[in-house]
Amino acid sequence: MQKGARTTVENAGPTGETGKRALRREVLAARRRLTADDVREAGRALAERALELPELAHARTVAAYVSVGGEPGTPALLDALRARGVRVLLPALLPDNDLDWGEYTGPDSLTRVRHGGRMALLEPSGPRLGPDAVTGADAVLLPGLAVDAHGMRLGRGGGSYDRVLARLERAGARPRLVVLLYDAEVVTRVPAEPHDRPVHAVVTPSGVRRFTGA
């Protein structure tokens, strides 16, 4: 699994958005080489590590997401959080790429939604709570493609979670921000832009790394 997910930021090329695009291509290519067993195995290990986090152990509400494709699997973590009595919020993509939220109450509460030509997403089928629902979360689990030594996260480039982070900042909300990745996706440097914000921690199948700059 680790060999399949291997990537290095040195291959990202220039800084800024050009460098981000290059790094995204590299990481996504590595993820495409993973097997379904790789993804499931990583998801189980990831859940074990994440559940050890004090931020999740004491959380009443966690905003998370349902993994798709080669992303480190989140279903085991979602069910474990719910079994603890945690309220789990999941995103629903809006036409403008912003995120609405709904509550996860088990696998049967998800519905598959295709947005245009994109990959189908599993989204909450229950009532929508509004984009501001995320501001009540004690922790936010973020998808990503890489994170660097300063906690700077590389997303897919759609801007959905940039909006989430900006919304949290405007509301004065201070949830713990945690990104879920494969081990090899913790890199030396992620090309950053002025609007980018660091996360507090990264969880990988082999452990947790915390950052002080968030």
Rank of each mutant, 00 (worst) to 15 (best):
L89P: 04
A42K: 05
A146H: 08
S125H: 01
P191G: 13
P54L: 12
A50Q: 07
R82T: 15
A171F: 08
P54H: 06
Y161C: 11
R167E: 11
A173T: 01
P72V: 12
A42S: 05
T7C: 15
M119Q: 12
L121G: 05
D183F: 13
T35D: 02
D132P: 00
K3I: 06
D132E: 13
R49A: 10
V190F: 11
T105H: 05
G159F: 01
L81T: 02
A45G: 01
G43H: 08
P194Y: 05
G106Q: 09
P194V: 14
E26Y: 00
T105R: 12
A64H: 04
L89E: 02
A22S: 14
D108Y: 00
G155M: 08
R44L: 12
P95L: 06
T18W: 04
L180I: 07
N97H: 14
A184K: 07
G85C: 12
A45H: 12
A47L: 06
R189H: 15
A64G: 00
V68F: 12
A149Y: 09
R153Q: 05
R40W: 10
L77I: 07
E185G: 11
W101K: 00
M1L: 13
R87F: 03
A139K: 10
A171Q: 04
E17V: 15
R49I: 06
R176P: 00
T188M: 14
H58Y: 03
G19Y: 05
G157L: 09
E123V: 13
T212H: 13
V88A: 11
V9Y: 13
A22M: 08
L122F: 13
L180P: 06
V62T: 10
L110I: 09
R128V: 08
G207V: 10
P14G: 08
T105N: 03
